[in-house]
């Protein structure tokens, strides 16, 4: 009984932590929606342009931020460490660099508002008019 209660509480917290993640771009970006694969290819450095042909610049959160791990987990199925190792491999080979990192959602949103090439991820929240949502990573989309 006691254990069951504890489990339900944990489930509640987790629901709160694992809120929907939104992939956002500059409001002027011609892209309306992106497929998950397209998002993966952009964030993992395979492509550096939006489907319409516009150059893309991925924005990332600082390593260790809970949302970052959650985002990569939901997007690629890999842990944060695995994604970092992936980037380390590519960086060691040269010519490739991981996405630029920001401290929190606010900074990210600010940058996206300013940068028309930017693409980033934030937790679900009310967003300013300068950005638009191109994809949602819902809780179920693991």
């Amino acid at each position: 009984m006691h254990k069951l209660a504890l489990f339900l509480i944990a489930l509640m917290f987790s629901g709160q932590l694992r809120a929907d993640i939104l992939v956002i771009v500059n409001a002027h970006n011609p892209v309306v929606t992106l497929e998950k694969k397209q998002v993966v290819d952009l964030f993992m450095g395979r492509v550096s342009a939006f489907p319409g042909g516009g150059a893309a610049q991925t924005l990332d959160l600082k390593t260790g931020t809970p949302l970052r791990a959650d985002f990569y987990k939901r997007l690629t199925g890999k842990s944060e460490a695995q994604v970092d190792a992936y980037w380390a491999t590519l960086v060691f080979a040269g010519r490739m660099s991981p996405p630029k990192q920001f401290a929190d959602d606010r900074e990210v949103i600010g940058e996206v508002t300013k940068n028309k090439m930017a693409i980033a991820y934030v937790a679900r929240q009310s967003l300013p008019g300068g950005v638009k949502i191109v994809m949602e990573l819902t809780q179920t989309a693991k």
Binding site: M44, G45, R46
Partner: peptide
């Protein structure tokens, strides 16, 4: 794994390595 990454991103340096 490394070869996959190289192929995935089309990274010639990594592939050559």
């Amino acid at each position: 794994t490394t070869a996959s990454i190289a192929a995935y991103v089309g990274n010639r340096e990594l592939a050559q390595q």
